[in-house]
Computed example of a mutant assay.
Amino acid sequence: MKEYKMICVDDQLGIRILLNEIFKDEYEVVMADSGSKAINLVKDFQPDVVLLDVKLGDMNGADVLGTINSINSNIKTIVMTGYNDDESLKRVEKLKPHMIINKPFDVNDIRSKVKEILY
């Protein structure tokens, strides 16, 4: 069994596939394509880390992050965004995720950032 559990939340299938490929060998990874699925997974799967996109089809990433924090404030959160001065990003920053990374991200960079917050 793998030491850490991870949820990757993005409404783009390609990003979810890429994140799964990056992390599946080291972490127990599950995917969510919406904020509501991510919240249900957080409750059931109890992850150590969540990689969360700011823009989701059904919910704003800030709302998802706030809910994750209220369920379990010990879950490490990394927010991924393709937007720099967006209003939703400002809302996310107020919720104090462990890290914010810009898309497109470098594979080795995101891998090292996850290790940095978990170890």
Rank of each mutant, 00 (worst) to 15 (best):
V9G: 12
K43Y: 12
I17N: 05
D10S: 10
V49C: 11
I15N: 08
F23V: 06
G35M: 03
L56D: 03
P47L: 07
D25K: 14
D58V: 01
K43R: 13
P47T: 09
K37E: 14
K55T: 08
I39E: 02
S34I: 03
E21Y: 09
V42H: 05
V50E: 06
G14F: 15
L41N: 08
L52N: 02
A38Q: 00
Y27R: 07
A38F: 02
A32I: 09
K43W: 08
D44W: 00
I15G: 00
V54M: 07
A38E: 06
S36P: 00
L41H: 08
K37Q: 12
V30E: 15
L18E: 07
E26N: 14
V50D: 07
D11G: 11
E26D: 15
I17Q: 09
I17L: 13
V42L: 08
G57W: 05
F45A: 06
D33T: 06
I15A: 02
D33P: 07
F23M: 07
D11M: 12
L52S: 02
K55W: 13
M59V: 00
L52W: 02
I22D: 08
D48H: 13
M59I: 00
D48V: 03
K55M: 15
M31F: 10
F23H: 06
I17R: 09
L13R: 11
D11A: 10
M6W: 03
I15P: 04
L51D: 00
E28A: 14
K43T: 14
V30C: 13
G14M: 15
N20W: 10
A38I: 05
E28M: 12
L51F: 07
R16I: 12
D44H: 08
E21N: 15
S36T: 14
I22C: 05
M6T: 10
V9N: 09
D44C: 03
K24T: 07
E28K: 12
